[in-house]
């Protein structure tokens, strides 16, 4: 399949990008998700606004205890250590298992979050890390907590005239426990179930169950799950009656595996 004809624009500053988007242009980042949509003609925009030449679109800056990651930062850059410290190590481990390297070379963290595929890795991991999305609109920047960012299948809290500018993640202490477990039929395949657990010493542990055909389920206080894992995992999973038996069984396993990993010293 070939895409329907579209015009191509290459905004060089953010206000121009916002104007294009306001006039109906579709933002294009690494096009690793948008490309297939265009080719299958599931998306037929009149114009693409290629974000890749915007200033500070990609890149990482650390301010105090926050790390700001430009929306255009590629999975590959994150895999290669663009994000510092323990947070960066966790993210590199996640990035390494997104798709295949050629996809990671182009695909961006912002594109992944804006696309909001329930099975996508950052969609599961960012809420677990307590990240914040930074949206840019006609009235300036706006902060959206990641646990409310993805609102449905391919739906986000971004307004139609907004762009995702960056993602902010906390600088995590070295001693955090982290568990991330996903089930893929093959290497590089989209996840069928993902579970993440972040245990920061002195704070309530946090868990996310994702890739279940809807927005990620965030468990802001996962203390019960950490304490009585099997029973609590069973209870959480029973809250997904729409899933088939297999998916529920794997979801339960995912939670237990993520807890086990996060509990390791």
């Amino acid at each position: 399949m070939k895409p329907a004809a579209f015009a191509y624009a290459r905004p060089l500053d953010w206000s121009e990008a916002l104007q294009l988007v306001a006039s109906g242009a579709r933002p294009a980042a690494g096009t690793q998700s948008l490309g297939p949509l265009l080719n299958l003609r599931l998306a037929q925009p009149d114009m693409l606004a290629d974000l890749r030449h915007l200033p500070d679109y990609a890149g990482v800056t650390v301010t105090g205890d926050a790390i700001r990651i430009g929306a255009g930062t590629t999975h590959a850059a994150i895999e290669d250590g663009a994000v510092p410290g323990r947070t960066g190590a966790i993210m590199a481990g996640v990035a390494r298992r997104i798709a295949y390297r050629p996809v990671r070379n182009r695909g961006t963290i912002g594109g992944s979050l804006a696309h909001a595929d329930p099975a996508a890795d950052w969609v599961a991991v960012m809420p677990a890390l307590g990240a914040t999305a930074i949206a840019l609109g006609p009235r300036g920047e706006r902060r959206i907590a990641l646990d409310g960012f993805v609102t449905g299948i391919f739906e986000t809290a971004l307004a139609s005239d907004e762009l995702l500018r960056a993602v902010e993640v906390p600088v995590l202490p070295d001693a955090v426990g982290w568990g991330h477990w996903k089930f893929c039929r093959k290497i590089g395949e989209f996840s069928k179930v993902t579970a993440c657990v972040l245990a920061v010493p002195g704070a309530a542990p946090r868990a996310v169950l994702a890739a279940l055909d809807g927005p990620p389920r965030v468990i802001a206080d996962a203390s019960a799950l950490m304490a009585d894992t099997e029973a609590e995992a069973t209870r959480i999973v029973s809250g997904f009656p729409e899933l088939d038996d297999w998916r529920r069984a794997v979801a339960q396993t995912a939670l237990m595996q993520a807890v086990a990993a996060a509990s390791q010293p």
Binding site: P36, L40, R185, K186, I187, G188, E189
Partner: peptide
């Protein structure tokens, strides 16, 4: 699509 029709890859 090949996201749904799974073919074995080298690692499989």
């Amino acid at each position: 699509t090949l996201a749904d029709y799974l073919l074995p890859g080298t690692t499989d």
